[in-house]
Design a protein around this nucleic acid. Structure first.
Lengths: 130, 130
DNA sequence: ATAATAAATGTTATATTATAACACTGTGTT
DNA sequence: AACACAGTGTTATAATATAACATTTATTAT
């Protein structure tokens, strides 16, 4: 069993903000939110974000340049991510569907590529906005 | 049957560069490549890119902020995109796999979201780099 | 305990990616 | 002609991300 990760000060501050948020947060919006805690520069945010991603605590939504907390049961290093994104309200929801994950993890590209990781982003209208 | 799209001058210039390229191109690298043709400003590139994406002529690789020509048989508006990306040589390959596409297009999110479009990016090592 | 190593921090500067805003041009209506 | 519309050119600026370097803190080995 993997040992619980110990986070550094800045990593914890950044993770707290992202976990409290209702939706994806952008790096600079995180920065503005933590300036009262003594974090002043983008670098500090991006470094924390990088580590948190490595740890699988958060994910980056590539199409939005924004970051969300990982909600899947165990937060190991994430090799398989999928999200549904509402194009109206911008809501992002992590999809944890075992079948989907298995299907994609075992997907074999004709050209003989061996995959380590994938990221899938679905776009549409959520239940509310529909 | 959809009529062949007529491209504007700038759209054609940008598409030509992207089609000639071996891999994904970034907006500013396109810009530097077309300055001899009288295109001077990022806006002109981004406007062309936006239209070309709308037309399905090119795709954006979100994780790289780069653009590739669509290689799939018919270049209609693209609602279902998938790519394999080599983490070593940065090669990007469009995956056109009917089964995969059908599987994902019919994927139904529990939370009742209706999808219009998806983008999938696989990461790993290509045959050469393996 | 201490030296050595690795990880994280703080800071300034700068690179890269992308959009806003406005004036203008060409083309096709009606 | 008057109008609408898509595309263009241009200047300025916003938003996202990294480089580089000095310092501090934590971890490990001896």
């Amino acid at each position: 069993m993997a040992q619980a990760q110990i986070l550094s000060r800045n990593q914890q501050i950044v993770l707290d903000i992202i976990e409290k948020a209702k939706g994806p947060l952008k790096a600079y919006s995180i920065l503005f939110n933590v300036q009262k805690k003594g974090i002043n520069a983008p670098q500090q945010i991006y470094r924390a974000l990088d580590k948190l991603i490595e740890m699988g605590k958060i994910h980056k939504i590539e199409s939005k340049n924004a970051f969300v907390a990982c909600r899947s049961s165990d937060c190991e290093i994430s090799k398989a991510t999928a999200f549904s994104i509402c194009e109206s309200c911008e809501m992002v929801d992590e999809i944890s569907d075992t079948k989907l994950s298995k299907y994609l993890s075992s997907f074999n590209h004709k050209k003989g590529m061996k995959f380590k990781r994938f990221n899938l982003e679905f776009f549409g209208l959520c239940k509310k906005c529909k």
